[in-house]
């Protein structure tokens, strides 16, 4: 998928996608992603098995993440340069939201 197509498909991004991509800056399998996100968000977001499974399938199919290797039927993923690019653009958007929200708190 080209960067342009990926932008259309993923930006703005759901929290689920954002945190999965963020977690995959390091190699992780599905369950480890859930644990990592739970820790990062203080258990506000607890990803479900079905959500993780289908999100990983979608991200892999579109080339935002890739399989590094398999361990006992579990796939281990990592983010691709395309995924990093999209994650960065989303981060810029979130930073803008953050600036706009300042003063409300």
């Amino acid at each position: 998928m080209s960067l342009e197509q990926a932008r259309k498909r993923y930006l703005p991004m759901s929290e689920t996608m954002f945190y999965i991509l963020l977690s995959l800056r390091e190699e992780r399998h599905g369950y480890a992603i859930m644990q990592h996100v739970k820790e990062l968000t203080d258990a506000r977001i607890v990803l479900g098995a079905g959500t993780v499974y289908s999100s990983l399938g979608k991200l892999e199919g579109d080339g935002l993440i890739t399989v590094v290797r398999e361990e006992d039927r579990r796939k281990i993923y990592i983010i691709t340069p395309l995924g990093r690019g999209i994650l960065r653009e989303e981060a810029l958007r979130v930073a803008e939201l953050h600036r706009s929200a300042e003063g409300l708190l």
Binding site: Y31, A49, G50, R74, K75
Partner: peptide
């Protein structure tokens, strides 16, 4: 209840791990 016509081979392992 999860309809999956042709699940990938990590489907079962992912759910089981959870």
């Amino acid at each position: 209840y999860d309809p999956q016509v042709s699940p990938r081979k990590d489907y079962i392992a992912t759910y089981e791990q959870f």
